[in-house]
Design a protein around this nucleic acid. Structure first.
Lengths: 216, 216
DNA sequence: TGCATATACCAATTATTGATGGATTGATAG
DNA sequence: CTATCAATCCATCAATAATTGGTATATGCA
């Protein structure tokens, strides 16, 4: 039955194609960005600080594993995740990594806003408060990403514009800021700025992908 | 802010450590086996037909990613998954692979028992029938794996013993056979044998890990 | 104590992947 | 129909991973 082994190996090899995609830090960063919505190669390259050529070749691997789709719009080529389940897998993997790798936990603590961030079990009470208007949920990602998808009741002020638009935010209620997920620094920066300006600000680690998985 | 990039890369690198584990077919096979319960290096090597040394070195990588734990019992060292969520991730990854990779779908069809296997949405009705005793759910994995965990209402007859113990099975009810999951050939073989002997037999692709994820 | 067994560790070899520079394709604007 | 911009393809080199053989360590047993 050597035939059986050959067929089995074939199956595992196929699955490993998917695993391989998630085995490179650069590709993970690209996937996280693609979880925020479709983007051009150039945009992805700029936001990850990876050269366009290298970005392109990593995207090629995502494409060959059928995890992303492309669409040409004029001069640009837009990449998007082929399915929501790709985002789900990214969330699952980084969540497992956070559970199992002490090094990652330590590194995350460093970027945590001083006291402590909002964590998983607060999600229900957070939504309740947001619904009642007791807190402001603030999306500090670029506007297009907010338009593509955002947390319920969230308001959009991109980090870049935050300093100029501070007046839009109330000082008598807590501001809960979020961005692309736990590895994105936008929300942490926003919280730092808000606190400095006398606001009550809290960092929510979830991005829309994490939120969606938690809701499921 | 070059510092920010450095810290971000560190985070993605950590997550990539987990991804890397799932990027090798051999390691995937080992993980699938470990989903069935704890096993010694030798057992894992034998059941995967991988040399002991190579098995040991792959297991070392699993250990360094904190995805497995070891325990010495006399001469042997037993490996087990460090957490249920590792099994969940394996299920998620191979499920995504099956959704996205046509090559994998085709390869799976080849090992499918002729008409078609039981699929996802049958799970509820399957359990109902099993509860009422209208069908027999048959676990054809080695006995230890059954003892470690098995589907509700399942009965154990390891494939090796099946031919000798046919008399224990009824001919007037359907036998639903399952094994370690969709890449394991035990259940397919069992179904072939049962059909040949005049039984009504159906192949259930789920293993305990897949079942557990579907229940969640 | 010494030997056998199970497994880990180390070194060397080959295969695969990641990264970079140069040339190429496809589309738009003039 | 040429220039330009976005993105890919290709060739190359460096880095990393997989595999194998040899050796070391720990346990149990005589």
């Amino acid at each position: 039955m050597k035939d059986a082994r050959k067929i089995k190996n074939l199956l595992y090899e196929q699955v490993a194609r998917i695993g391989k995609v998630f085995s490179s830090p650069k590709r993970l960063e690209l996937i996280e960005l693609l979880c925020q919505g479709e983007k051009t190669v150039e945009t992805l390259a700029r936001e990850t600080a990876i050269s366009v050529k290298l970005t392109s070749s990593h995207l090629r691997e995502l494409r060959m594993a059928h995890l992303v789709e492309t669409e040409r719009q004029g001069k640009n080529i837009y990449y998007r995740l082929a399915d929501k389940s790709v985002a789900d897998l990214w969330v699952q993997i980084h969540t497992l990594a956070e559970e199992r790798l002490i090094e990652l936990q330590l590194a995350l603590q460093k970027i945590a806003t001083q006291p402590d961030d909002l964590v998983a079990n607060d999600r229900d009470s957070l939504m309740k408060a947001a619904r009642k208007g007791e807190i402001v949920v603030l999306d500090v990602r670029p506007a297009e990403e907010y338009l593509n998808a955002h947390l319920p009741f969230a308001r959009s002020i991109p980090l870049e514009e935050l300093r100029l638009r501070l007046a839009e935010l109330p000082k008598d209620r807590s501001i809960v800021a979020y961005c692309r997920g736990p590895y994105c620094l936008l929300a942490a920066d926003a919280v730092a700025l808000l606190k400095q300006e006398g606001y009550t600000a809290i960092h929510l680690r979830d991005g829309v992908a994490e939120w969606a998985v938690a809701r499921a």
